[in-house]
Amino acid sequence: MLKHRVIPCLLLEHGGLVKTRKFSEPKYVGDPINAIRIFNEREVDELMVLDIRASREKREPDYALIEQFAGECFMPLCYGGGIHSLSQAKQLFSLGVEKVCLQTSALENTRLISEITGSYGNQSVVVSADVKKGWFGGKHLYASCAGKSARITLEDFLTRSVEAGAGEILLNSVDRDGTMSGMDFDLIREVSRKHTVPLIAAGGVASLQDIRQAVLAGASAVAAGAFFVFQGPHRAVLITYPKYSELETLLGDMQDNESN
C-alpha cells in the first residue's frame, strides 16, 4: 500500500544550509552536503532543497552544488529557487534532479509550468504557494521573492498552475514556518478539497502527530524543515528522521480512513 511521503525541506542561502522562522531570521545550520548524506542514510522518502536567495538576487541555480546533491541523493530530489526558463529546468533534470519547484516565475506567468511539463511530464513540476495571515485575519497568497502579498488569490494561482500542468502543490504557512507550533490544518483541508493533484503540506510541524493530522486533512505528503534539523527548546542543530517502520505505523491506516 502506498505510504504518504514525509519530506525534509532544506533551505539554501549562499551555499550554506539555513532555517528560517516565519520566512525571516535565517539561522545557519550547516553544510548542505553533510545534511543530505545524513538524510540519505536515514532513507528519507524524498528530499526538497529550496534556494531562498536565488530569485531575490536574480541568480541562476547553483548547478555545481546541485549536481553534488544529486550525486548523494538515492531518493527523489526536488529543487526550487531561481528557475525562470525551460533551459534552466532542463539543466537541473540533466544533473539528476527529479522535480523543480516554482513560485516566483509561476506568479508572473504560468507559461513556464506548461513548457516544463510539456517536455518532462506533470510530475516534474511542483508549484509552491506561501500563505500569510493579513492584518484582519484573512489568509493571503504571499510572494516570498517580493516579500509582500501576491496580486492574485491563492485559489486563482493554484487553479491556473494546475491547469498549466503542475503535478503537485507545495503549500506553506508563512506564520508557522520554523515555529514548530503546529500546522494550519484548516488551510490544508481547504486546498486539498479544491485540487485533485497531490498536496505537500508544510509549515509548523511540531510532532509526528502533526504529520498524521495533515494527512488526515488531505495532504498526500508533509514537508518539514525545523522539525528535522532542530532538537530541544534551544533549537540545537541535530538532523533526525523517523524510521520507515515508525512512519508506516503512524500513517499506515490512512487510505482506509480517508475513504470513509
Binding site: M1, L2, K3, H4, R5, D45, N122, Q123, G167, E168, T196, P198, S220, A221, Q255, D256, E258, S259
Partner: peptide
C-alpha cells in the same frame, strides 16, 4: 469512483 478520493492518480510515492 468510491476510491477516487483516497487512491490518487498518479501513483506517487513509496510502495511495497
Amino acid at each position: 469512483e468510491s476510491q477516487k478520493l483516497s487512491v490518487k492518480v498518479p501513483h506517487m510515492g513509496w510502495n511495497r
